[in-house]
Simulated assay, not measured.
Amino acid sequence: MTTDHSIENTRIPEYDVDPLFIERWSPRSFTDKEIPKQVLHSVLEAAKWAPSASNWQPWRFIIAQTKADREKFHSFIFDSNRAWCEQAPVLILFISKKTMPDGRPNPFHQMDTGAAWASIAFQAKMLGLATHGMGGFDREKAREVLEVPDEYEINHIAAIGYQGAAEALPEQFREREKPSSRNPLSEIVFEGEFGREVEGI
């Protein structure tokens, strides 16, 4: 007997929400189909408009869409991620400027860059693309290979492309190629102070 891991059976919202938020997930299987520049630029445009503390916009994106540039990325991505991400036609390194314009530390740079990443993920989904973020890579080597200045934090990498079939993945990833569920609101939302339940949730 097989288990149904479809979105309809795995991701059941507790309250009404746009289907975009339910249907976006992080597959590992990508085809090698190139992303048209106009489509990729639309995805990046969405990130440009992400919320930003005091409009400092600390995010920066280094994209790899040529074979030579992707191979640079492959040099610092751990083998466990390279095994599936090498097929993706575009890789993006997310970095963020750690200081405000006056030179003081910016405590919001990673949060803002996370908002930009979410914008990319959702806009990509709207345009028929899949995305998968990964933290498994050598950050110091990435800084060296891509010549990232010290004032920028290296956050994560995302693979982006058109979704492929689970059967195209190395065997160890095939069982994991399915949408994941989420914790209930009652576990993540509190009323007034940490740990206090919200009535009705």
Rank of each mutant, 00 (worst) to 15 (best):
M1H: 07
T2G: 07
T3C: 07
D4M: 06
S6K: 07
S6F: 05
T10G: 05
Y15V: 15
V17C: 09
V17T: 15
D18H: 15
I22F: 02
S26V: 10
P27H: 05
S29L: 06
I35F: 00
L40M: 11
H41W: 12
S42C: 10
S42N: 15
K48F: 10
K48R: 15
W49N: 05
S52C: 01
S52H: 02
S54A: 12
F61H: 08
I62P: 00
I63A: 13
Q65E: 13
T66G: 03
D69E: 15
H74P: 05
F78Q: 13
A83R: 04
A83G: 01
W84I: 06
C85I: 09
P89A: 01
L91H: 13
L93H: 00
F94N: 14
F94Y: 14
I95P: 00
D102K: 08
N106F: 03
F108I: 07
Q110K: 14
Q110D: 13
M111K: 13
I120T: 07
M126C: 11
A130W: 05
H132Y: 07
M134W: 02
G136Q: 04
F137R: 08
P149C: 04
D150K: 05
D150C: 04
D150M: 04
E153S: 13
E153Q: 11
I154S: 00
H156L: 09
A158F: 05
A158R: 10
G161R: 03
G164I: 03
A166L: 09
E167I: 11
F173L: 11
R174N: 07
R174I: 09
E175V: 13
K178F: 12
K178A: 15
L185M: 14
S186E: 10
V189H: 01
F190C: 06
E199D: 14
